[in-house]
Amino acid sequence: MLSPEDNEHLQALRTTTLSVLERVLAGATDIALIDAPNQRNVGDSLIWAGEIAYFQKLGLRIRYICDLWSYDPAGLRRAMPEGVVLFHGGGNFGDLWPGHQILREKVARDLTDYRVVQLPQSIYFADDARAAEANAILGGHPDFHVLIRDSLSITRAAEQLPDVTISFCPDMALGWTAPASTSDAAAASDRVVVIARADKEASSGLDTVDAAWLPGRETHVTDWAELSAVSRRWRFYRNLSLCTRFYAKVRKRIRFLPVRLPNRFAQWVITGINDVNVSNAVHLYDGSRAVVTDRLHAHILAVLMGIPHVVLDNNYQKVSQIMRDYSGGFSTVGYADDLTEARSLAMAVKV
């Protein structure tokens, strides 16, 4: 449950986002969504949920959808002769997660006759030469727009992507509305959920803590991937998505195969995967006293559910910068520079 002040802050961010989307869509109602999330990361699924919420408010129709592995420019053209091409938002713009950047640049080369909009991203290129290559490709597209969700990434883009049109827009996950809690707040346990990343963005050391990290508290340490690993529903939808991916591959060779009906099925499957991810995370959080995390969207989920939480940074300041810009304005969040401070803040949450 959000306080009136937190709800006011959230609504202001949503109003800003809707205004930016209306401007970059330029009156279009038909959209294609590229690089839709089809994996275990709850953060991407929360962004997806927020994107869908905004699309519904704006009356947008998804005419074509694909994940990282199933993009087909000819299929897109058949499904959506006119409209705006959107890229799923997130934190993969740059050379840290190269597959997504390669797809982004391929689309920029293929679809020069469409307006293309990258939904809000954080930007990080470790290699200036790779950034210059991206600038040449994306900047060479006549109508390519990049929405950026934090001021540090705007600074990076100004330096490394000078020929690309950029605008600020808050993270899209904030468009999603959390369901009402099924737990009695007064009867909540002393459980603290720790969501700790252990991938190439990890830098806080949170993944080294265990159940004894917070004395006297029931501490559950996990990461997003573990939530889907035990979900039969997730595996069901995931297996179906492999079928849709195979169909998209075959259609590239046999051009007369239908596009629209199979693509609607693909959208249903991707929706199922992301709904399972989000519902699993909500179930994990529900009834918890506090959350400690170094994942941006574990923080955003706690914000939207009104749960007190402590946040540490990732390796390229994505989390801390978004907190400084707007997500730190919610009353339920505290920022920690290290594990010692994070433990102190988590222990201070009243039981």
Score class of each variant (00 low, 15 high):
residue 250 V to E: 14
residue 241 S to Y: 00
residue 221 V to D: 01
residue 255 R to L: 10
residue 19 S to K: 05
residue 133 E to N: 15
residue 7 N to D: 07
residue 130 R to F: 04
residue 256 F to P: 03
residue 211 A to P: 08
residue 199 D to H: 14
residue 4 P to A: 04
residue 142 P to H: 10
residue 316 Y to I: 15
residue 102 I to M: 11
residue 292 V to C: 05
residue 332 T to D: 02
residue 267 Q to I: 00
residue 91 G to H: 10
residue 192 V to D: 07
residue 37 P to T: 03
residue 205 G to I: 01
residue 27 G to T: 08
residue 151 S to I: 10
residue 65 I to Q: 14
residue 268 W to M: 12
residue 110 D to S: 03
residue 183 S to E: 12
residue 200 K to E: 07
residue 203 S to H: 09
residue 151 S to M: 03
residue 23 R to Y: 02
residue 136 A to E: 12
residue 294 D to W: 05
residue 246 F to A: 04
residue 149 R to N: 07
residue 174 L to W: 10
residue 259 V to G: 05
residue 256 F to R: 15
residue 172 M to E: 09
residue 183 S to M: 12
residue 203 S to T: 14
residue 347 M to W: 02
residue 25 L to H: 13
residue 304 L to S: 06
residue 182 T to A: 03
residue 84 V to C: 08
residue 325 D to S: 08
residue 293 T to D: 04
residue 21 L to E: 09
residue 241 S to F: 08
residue 125 F to S: 06
residue 91 G to Y: 09
residue 139 G to F: 00
residue 234 W to L: 03
residue 15 T to S: 13
residue 148 I to D: 14
residue 32 A to G: 11
residue 256 F to V: 14
residue 27 G to K: 13
residue 168 F to C: 00
residue 166 I to R: 15
residue 56 Q to I: 10
residue 351 V to E: 12
residue 95 D to E: 09
residue 57 K to A: 07
residue 101 Q to M: 03
residue 202 A to M: 07
residue 79 A to R: 07
residue 64 Y to T: 11
residue 3 S to C: 01
residue 336 A to F: 11
residue 172 M to H: 11
residue 330 F to P: 00
residue 109 R to V: 03
residue 21 L to V: 05
residue 204 S to Y: 11
residue 115 R to W: 00
residue 272 G to Q: 06
residue 10 L to I: 00
residue 247 Y to N: 08
residue 236 F to G: 10
residue 126 A to I: 13
residue 350 K to I: 12
residue 36 A to V: 01
residue 204 S to K: 13
residue 190 D to A: 02
residue 350 K to T: 13
residue 25 L to M: 11
residue 139 G to W: 08
residue 255 R to M: 08
residue 297 H to D: 05
residue 279 S to P: 15
residue 268 W to H: 00
residue 35 D to E: 01
residue 223 D to E: 09
residue 179 P to T: 11
residue 200 K to H: 06
residue 318 K to G: 03
residue 192 V to F: 01
residue 36 A to G: 05
residue 110 D to H: 03
residue 120 P to S: 07
residue 304 L to K: 08
residue 300 I to N: 12
residue 108 A to K: 12
residue 288 S to R: 11
residue 259 V to E: 10
residue 331 S to W: 14
residue 108 A to I: 04
residue 92 N to A: 05
residue 8 E to Y: 02
